[in-house]
Amino acid sequence: MIGSPPKAIDVAGLVVYRGDSLAVDGVDLEIEPGIITSIVGPSGCGKTSLLRAIAGFERPAAGSIAIDGESVVGPDRWVPPERRRVGMVFQEGALFPHLSVAENVRYGIRGGPESRVAEVLGLVGLAELGHRMPHELSGGQQQRVAVARALAPSPRVILLDEPFVNLDATLRERVREDVRQILDRAGITTVLVTHDQEEALSVARRVAVMDAGRILQVDAPEDIYLRPESARVAEFIGDGQLVPCTVEGGTFVSAFGTGSCEGTDGDGRLFLRPEDLEQLSEGRDGGVPATIVGRRFYGHDVLDRVRLDSGEEIEVRCLSSTVLPVESVVRIALRRRLYRVFS
C-alpha cells in the first residue's frame, strides 16, 4: 500500500457475529474519500452490522478497519466509538428529545465555537429552527438536523443507517435529495446503508451490493445495473429474470431470440430485464410470436406479461401510449446489443 493514498475507510477480512449467527463473513471493502458510497442488500444481509462495526458499536471477531489510514480495529487494537471521529445518522434521526435543535448540534462540539452550530444548521437550511424541540419538527426536518449534528464535529466520515426508511414515500425522495446535496456540498466521505436499491443507485457514486454477509460487487451504479458480475447481483438489482440459453462463440440462443453476449460456451442463464425486450410494432420483421397474458399499468409505462407458444413467460416493458389490448398476439424481440450470460 506504500505510495497509494489511504482510503477513507479500509475494511479487511472483517467478521462480525450477531449473537450466534454470522452477520459479516470476511468482508474486504475500500471506501473512496469524498463521495457517497451505498451498501445495499436484502434485510439480514449484514450491511447494518458492517456499518456498526465501522462506527464502533459492534466488536468484530476478526479483521481490521482503518479510517483515513488510522487503524481503529485490528489485532490488539480497539478505538471506542467516541474517539473514531465518525458521524452517524440513524433511522429516525435519534435527536435527543430533551435538548433543543441547537443543543443537539452543540452536543458533539462541546467547547467548540458557537458559530459552528449556526454554520451547520445553515448548511442544512434550518438556521432559524435552533430553538425548537425535536418533537416540534417534521420527519424530514428531524433527519436534516441529525445530519447537521453529525457534521458539526467535522468527522472523517458520515455513516447513514437506513436514514429515510421511516419517511413516507412522497417525502422520502425530497429528503433524500436534500441530504445528498448537503453531503455533496460538504464533500465528506459518506457511507449509506439501505435495502432500497433505487435509493442505493440514485444517491451514491459507488454502490456495494451485499448478500449473506459478503460483498458481491462494488461499482458505479450504472455498472451494477448494466453489468452485474453475478446472477445474484443481477436478480437483486432491478426487475428481471434468468432464462436458459446456450452460448457458442460469443452468441447465445434462447427461446426469446439470439444475440451477442459475454460468457463461456455451453449451457448458461441469460439475464433479461423487462426493458431489454420490446413488442415489435406492425410492419417490423423478426421477433418471436407471443400472447399478452397480463398487465401492470404504471402510467408512464406498462409491464406486459407475455407467453410464448412454447409456454415460457416473460415481462416486457412498453410505453403506455403504444400498448395493445391484453390477449393480443404480438411479436417480441431483444433490443440490446450485448447481454450477460451466467453459467
Partner: peptide
C-alpha cells in the same frame, strides 16, 4: 440504543452519555 450510539459517535464517553442522554430520558 440509537440515542446512546449517537452520543458516543459525537465524541461523548460512557459517563457523559449516561448523564447527558440516558438519565434525562
Amino acid at each position: 440504543p440509537a440515542y446512546e450510539e449517537s452520543s458516543r459517535s459525537l465524541g461523548a464517553g460512557r459517563w457523559r452519555t449516561f448523564f447527558g442522554v440516558v438519565l434525562p430520558q
